[in-house]
């Protein structure tokens, strides 16, 4: 199948280095400490953060840092064919990956004896759910006022028809080419997540990785705009009086 036509356009009309449209909204779950919806094209994820709060399982209590828990699930209606049972291996693995990524950016040492719960649900899946989940979780954590070292952002890139492609959708993702998901801390310039299925030659990998990091930085810009707007809004509504 031809994923990039001779004019250099992809199946959905994007160029190789173009991302899908990003829509982010903060404060969608009123009972949660922090919440956000993050959309990348047709991929849509809702995140809710509870905590830091009293630890529920006393045996997991940590004396020097907070416990971060993450639950990822996919809504049954998120894909065309109805999803199978809950708690499958894919969800467990993704929960773990997201937990580790978020744990790296939260200053957990400031909140001993407490736990932070992150709940993520995929409302629509169209490739790149992993990245969308991390971005949604970052927004929700920032909304909950949890101290963080940096905003973790993530983006994926792939390699098809000997072209590196940014932000794969479901069709491109299932083409069987390499899929590199990168999570970075833009300010500290560190990589917190790097996953790849399939193999790539070293030189190609580097260009794909560079493309994904560029994507991350663009997403970080967007996330910062949304957060700053939200912070200003809250402050002037509260008023200085």
């Amino acid at each position: 199948m031809e994923y990039v036509n001779p004019e250099g356009l992809r199946l959905d009309g994007r160029r190789f280095n173009e991302m899908r449209q990003i829509v982010a909204e903060i404060g969608v779950v009123s009972k949660a400490d922090g919440s956000a919806v993050f959309e990348m094209g047709n991929t849509k994820v809702i995140a809710a953060v509870y905590g830091p709060r009293e630890i529920q399982n006393k045996s997991q209590k940590k004396n020097d840092h907070a416990l971060v828990l993450c639950e990822y699930s996919m809504a049954h209606f998120s894909t065309g064919d109805r999803r199978r049972q809950k708690n499958d291996r894919r969800s467990t693995e993704l929960s773990l990956v997201i937990r580790q990524t978020m744990e790296a950016c939260i200053s957990t040492e400031l909140m001993p004896h407490s736990q932070i719960d992150i709940f993520l649900q995929v409302l629509q899946a169209d490739g790149g759910t992993r990245s969308a989940c991390i971005n949604a979780a970052t927004l929700a954590l920032a909304d909950a006022g949890i101290p963080m070292r940096d905003l973790a952002v993530s983006c994926s890139a792939g390699y098809l028809n000997s072209t590196p492609l940014l932000d794969l959708n479901y069709l491109e993702d299932s083409a069987g080419g390499a899929d590199v998901t990168v999570g970075i801390l833009p300010k500290l310039d560190k990589v917190t997540l790097l996953q790849m299925d399939a193999k790539l030659p070293m030189e190609t990998f580097e260009t794909v990785f560079a493309l994904a990091s560029e994507g991350c930085k663009a997403i970080a810009e967007r996330i910062r705009e949304v957060l700053l707007e939200n912070t200003k809004q809250l402050e002037y509504r509260r008023g200085s009086a």
């Binding site: 920032a142 905003l151 833009p186 910062r224 957060l227 200003k232 402050e235 002037y236 008023g239 200085s240």
Partner: peptide, 14 residues
């Protein structure tokens, strides 16, 4: 109405 001096004091993570 919110004091203009305060508006650019808003910061976000990093």
């Amino acid at each position: 109405l919110s004091s203009t001096a305060n508006s650019d004091a808003s910061v976000i993570v990093t």
